[in-house]
Design a protein around this nucleic acid. Sequence first.
DNA 1: TTGAATGCAAATAATTTGCACGGAT
DNA 2: ATCCGTGCAAATTATTTGCATTCAA
Lengths: 147, 147
Amino acid sequence: MPGSWKDVFHSFNKKATPSRYAIVKVFEEKAKHLSAEEVYECLKVRKQKIGIATVYRNLDLLLRMGILRKVNFGDGKEHYEMVHRPTQYHHHLICTNCGQVIDYGEVVQEEKSFLKRLKEELERKYHFRIESHHIYFYGLCHHCQKE
Amino acid sequence: MPGSWKDVFHSFNKKATPSRYAIVKVFEEKAKHLSAEEVYECLKVRKQKIGIATVYRNLDLLLRMGILRKVNFGDGKEHYEMVHRPTQYHHHLICTNCGQVIDYGEVVQEEKSFLKRLKEELERKYHFRIESHHIYFYGLCHHCQKE
DNA sequence: TTGAATGCAAATAATTTGCACGGAT
DNA sequence: ATCCGTGCAAATTATTTGCATTCAA
């Protein structure tokens, strides 16, 4: 396992195991949101010996470590994706008909400044310390509009 | 049942049943997001004879009718809430420690115009027809910050 | 009257847990 | 050597489905 991930796990007083490394590698390589089952299937294809329970336990660990975040598309299962640096954040566009999900980056200039202001306003008003946010847009994808 | 709801169901070619009316009444009165189980428990307290399957079936119906929307707080169950007119929309602030959810309305002036622009940009770029959006903010509530 | 809606129980799907064993430190 | 992490199977939780019965139109 590359030293960097090893160090990350150790910095959280967690052991750097093959299972854990295999999971983060899947997310690094696929670079998209995956359900627990999808991670599990992907690892099976790669001949990585792992149980589904270990996948769930480590997804939860990676969540608590701040390496993954949960996203939910309303399809009955949780999905997970890597947390990117603030400059690389993205949100989701979900087709309510076919379930397709599109990741989009920053498309409008003032997005960051607007969200910063909204965040600060919410923190003051509700005495929260806000750590992240997520925007979901729902509608019909190109294909489903024609039906 | 008040004529208005009766008409709404009929306009969708659906029967106006006591179960359906009881469910919308719960959402009207509680005015907040509820899980299927919470709706069911609430109706039991009110002596409304109903099965949990009927609750799920009608939540789904009300979703398709555009009366309810699904919201997800990452706690393993779906929650539902009434869709309000665009001028009354609100989003959610979720405490990642205790799970508390705060509904917030429009707190920053340019919120609507910003989101309108973002929506239009996304529609053009991805050929979507966007119908709604939802913003979630995550962090620590006042109480959990002190721990 | 008649098909849509319901209640109940059983089925399914997603996720979690208990426990004995194996492996990272 | 020591526990943390793991696999497996069983348990739990959320949601869906099949079917006989009920009831709104």
